[in-house]
């Protein structure tokens, strides 16, 4: 039986507290990984490992970090993700709320998009 949303959140929180040394109270569903919790690029390696272990799942890097899209000249023009690129991102990351990013899709802002809630939703999709 798949774990409840609360169970998923608690495990994700444990992983983030361990990987980032974050205060438990700061790990809220709305918190962004980079801006609020201070995650740096190398932390994601650790976070992915801890989530894989906690939930016994495999996490292909491109599902959480669509670098191939964000560095593609097909999907990015002048540092902004094109409409086609946004569609590709939505298809790749159905768990992420891209509505805010879509309004001003600067590639440089993408890194700060992912929230704790996005991570929980992503994990939930892997547990179905």
């Amino acid at each position: 039986m798949a774990p409840s949303q609360e169970e998923v959140f608690e495990k994700v929180k444990d992983a983030l507290v361990a990987a980032l040394g974050a205060d438990e109270d700061d790990v809220t569903p709305e918190a962004t990984m980079v801006g609020d919790l201070g995650a740096e690029s190398i932390d994601f390696l650790d976070i992915v490992f801890k989530l894989e272990k906690a939930f016994n799942i495999q996490i292909p890097r491109e599902e959480l970090f669509p670098d191939d899209i964000l560095t593609s000249s097909t999907y990015v023009t002048d540092g902004r993700v094109t409409a086609e690129g946004l569609a590709k991102l939505k298809e790749r990351m159905p768990f992420a709320d891209l509505s805010g990013f879509s309004k001003n899709p600067l590639v440089q802002d993408f890194a700060n998009l992912l929230t704790v809630n996005d991570l929980c939703r992503y994990v939930a999709t892997k547990l179905r």
Binding site: L45, V48, F49, E52, K53, R61
Partner: peptide
Amino acid sequence: QSLQGEGAV
């Protein structure tokens, strides 16, 4: 524990 192209734990 984990080995990826960009690093390892």
